[in-house]
Amino acid sequence: MSLSRRSFVIERLRKERLLSLLAKGHRLDDRGLLDYRPVKIETNVIDKAEGSAKVDLGDTSVIAGVKVELDRPFKDTPDKGILIVNTEFLPFASPYIEPGPPDENAIELARVVDRGIRESGMVDLSKLAVKPGEQVYAIFADVDVLNIDGNLFDATSYAVVSALATAKIPEYEVDGDGTVKATGNIVQLPITTIPISITAAKIGDYIVFDPTEEEEAVIDTRLTIVFSEDNTLCAIQKGEPGSWTPDEIVNLIGEADGKAREIREIVKRSISP
């Protein structure tokens, strides 16, 4: 599925009103400029998945499911497991969805979420080679986008992170004669950190966090930053036409870091058993 290209005529007309609100420090939904909508995370919502999480970020709603199988490793990483993030905009997620294969928006979303999780080292893939060079765990994190109201990057990232962190996978061992077999034990994925994605958007001269669909229709540019727990940045993606000054980016990263710490606490509470 892909999003059709909306003309956003009404939204553009509303931009003036939005800007005058922002000048007073308000948004259309009464939030402060740097406030997030409520983040609601529910884990283990799908029994048949090895891990799952439903995330509601305001009216944006996504569900991530983790499925695990044994597979041959990629040629260039024979001693590592495989992690694949895929996203699907379901046809009912918005009135503007078109049928067809994932478009550039869905592909960018999946790749940016994947990048943040991969580069943070959240899942220690080196511990997922059951028989290096031959059999490794392949972790598929598939995301269904259920309802679109802006900031899919963060909602999707929180869902995949929560689903991975709570996933329970079958344990395998290599026999004396070299065959791979299940031990019958169910184990957790090797999780090292909880990466948190923060998305900011610029509207005129104002910077807001967690933009809604209505705001995204008129934003000039967007920046998604993913923070790891060891005080590092692990992924960045600028999106939309429009531009940032270097100073804006440096200041924004400071603000976003604090917000990431707040949201990490919410995610950690939701994934703790």
């Binding site: 990048r115 991969r118 590092t232 600028k238 036409p241 940032w244 980016i249």
Partner: peptide
């Protein structure tokens, strides 16, 4: 003095 593309992977 404007940045129009910014991506990063790695820590």
């Amino acid at each position: 003095n404007r940045i129009t593309l910014l991506q990063m992977d790695g820590k």
